[in-house]
Nucleic acid binder design. Sequence first.
RNA 1: UGCCGGAUCGUCUAAUGGCAGGACAGCAGUCUCUGAAUCUGCUUAUCAAGGUUCGAAUCCUUGUCCGGCAACCA
Length: 749
Amino acid sequence: MIDEDLAAGRHTRVVTRFPPEPNGFLHIGHAKSICLNFGIALDYQGKCNLRFDDTNPLTENESYVRAIEADVRWLGFEWGATAYASDYFEFMFERAELLIRKGLAYVDSETQDEIAAKRGTIHEAGRAGAFRDRSVAENLDLFSRMRAGEFADGAHVLRAKIDLAHTNLLMRDPLLYRIRHASHYRRGESWCIYPMYDYAHPLEDAYEGVTHSLCSLEFETHRPLYDWVVRETEAPCRPQQIEFARLVLSYTVLSKRYLMQLVKEGHVSGWDDPRLPTLAGLRRRGVLPQSIRRFADMVGVARANSTVDMGKLEFVLRDDLSPIAPRVLCVLDPLEVVVTNWPEERTDWLDASLWPADVAMEGTRRLPFGRRLWIERGDFAETPPKGWHRLSPGAEVRLRHAYVLRCDAVERDASGAAVRLLCTADLATLNAAPVGRKVPGTIHWVAADHAVACEIRLYDRLFSTEAPGTDEARSFLTELNPASLVVMRDAKIEPSVVGSDPVTRWQFERQGYFQADPVDSTPSRPVFNRIVTLKDGWTKVATREEPAAPAPRAKAGPQPAQNPVTSSKRLSARADPTHAALVARGVDVDTADVLAADEALLAFFDGAVARSAADPALVARWVANEIVRETKTRRLADIPVTPQAFGDLVKLIADGTVSASAAKDVFARMAKDGTDPGAIVADAGLRQVSDASALGAVVDAVVAGHAADVARYRAGKTQLLGFFVGKVLQASGGSANPAMVRELLLARL
RNA sequence: UGCCGGAUCGUCUAAUGGCAGGACAGCAGUCUCUGAAUCUGCUUAUCAAGGUUCGAAUCCUUGUCCGGCAACCA
């Protein structure tokens, strides 16, 4: 779209903007918009402004401005000077006066309720209020007194004078300004009237020379108003509003209202709670900004509402972290192991690689090994399930980077729970495979005497349902995942990690990716946040014994065939004598439905038939397809094609001078500039070639030139026929007789 | 029920009227001192019915379903 605008000369450079309102924190949905806007600017070597849409003094403040700037910078984008809508108030005011002078805006002194009542409904037109026809002079006077502070809040508003009967409610004299005696965080008391979004936003864009104003789908119905403001205020440039679908992510919420409620009511620890999808939360959790950017790229931009699977984000997180996260050992839920064949006082320092073979990084650390160890409680099972690869009585596992260990005995507490494992290490297995047997599993561990106690915060999805907040019957709070935060206060980590650069993202082997909490972690009491888990193939296997998943939801079967006679629209159309007359002339009923429904179209058809002398059925088909398409974007009268010219075109088709596909190209040009069809055909060399030997040569050339594709076709990929037809048509400049080409190809292939 | 949008694998997203492709997820296998990663292979989609066309996800018609819109919020 932008390419088109540039090509058409509508713009010479691209300017976009990201326009947050400073009344909340940015979340990953905003990140999508930021990446889009800044990304387009980067792609086209244009620029993207960061502009605060601060036109409502009641909810906005400076701290949000700072937080938002920090978030955008963190994401990795740069901009010139930060812009503020509140800097344009004077400009907006002047343009409002211009509207008043043009008779396109007026001061309305009715109450909010009266205005709402008179706006009408989707079924009824609105009614004019008592003040709609005030004189320009009176409006100007009132408006300047509004600004001067002579009136109380709500006493007057400035409204655009557009159309109270407009089918789009937003066009029914929308409010432009309201009185608000409030202190603005930047302008203080200097203004007491504030512009509304629909008025302010287009002017902000125009003021900054924005070319493409990207916003979310719900503003679609605002576009006519946006265009109206740009046009009628005679704005310095003509920005174009383009809508796209906002991001919806499963298992979380992305609405300002919900996020605010979670924070205000203390369901989370603050805007930067690592469970929140806010950029502040994601950052504190340890997420890399590049992952957010990659995720934004991955989800794409479209105009269809959709919900992106949280799993996609998690994939990017893991994928970006794996190559940069050193691997270390940390036991979350410790269970004591005594290596009975290891001397009491002896500690060996083992060299252990920080990186797996598939990561192109090098480095090792010293890992202590002693008689007492911690292993993960979950890695031991008294009665192992089928397929268990870990420790159980009598069984062996590999201790990562160390020895193969066998469990000989289990010590239990009064309740029978295991409290200590007595094990034997096979001392011949350091950096060596055990002899005569396979040890299926490897587990992580930490030497008890050198372990550092730490706190681990395990974050999971904030909600346990896929689409929280969509069930009207209950509060979204009931959908919170009670296990979204699990704190392991007694975790043990290997000593090498302590004292490292706090921004390091670690992989705790077999657990996930972690980073020290930037707020709560101290050298004496390290605290780590889990960024994301590792993919877990075992729990999947272990839980698979459940009853078989329900059959995929039944695909909507074929809908019942339309019975033409049951469609009321068609029924009435067919009762029409015009319809009957068309059918009598040979036009098929479906096409007749289309023509009979529109008088202008019918007249056009008649004109074309008269000129072409061709079969009315053929003319009707071409009118019903080609002309009707053009009328989607403009009125029939605005199409520079006369019924006569169209009749000429159909004549060319009817007598075989041009093929149907060439005729479409011809029509496209006619529709653009009204050129005579005969001239186009001559000019572009579209006269249909039906000479078998001439076409045969072209077909042979194409077949010879695409040997690989020919082989695929012969191997059964018959869909390629269309590809070959296309190639031949292309080679002939669009003049070949397609039906004949097809025949020839079929014979050759 | 007025206006405006939208509909392609389970999910997200591509395809000047010419090979329905990619990613995630899933499945199977490979490998493994991380049940991770890697590697290999596989399954799965054009909302429906008509029409136009040599050829339709794409154009036309009708219908179905979904979303948005009636704040002195943005």
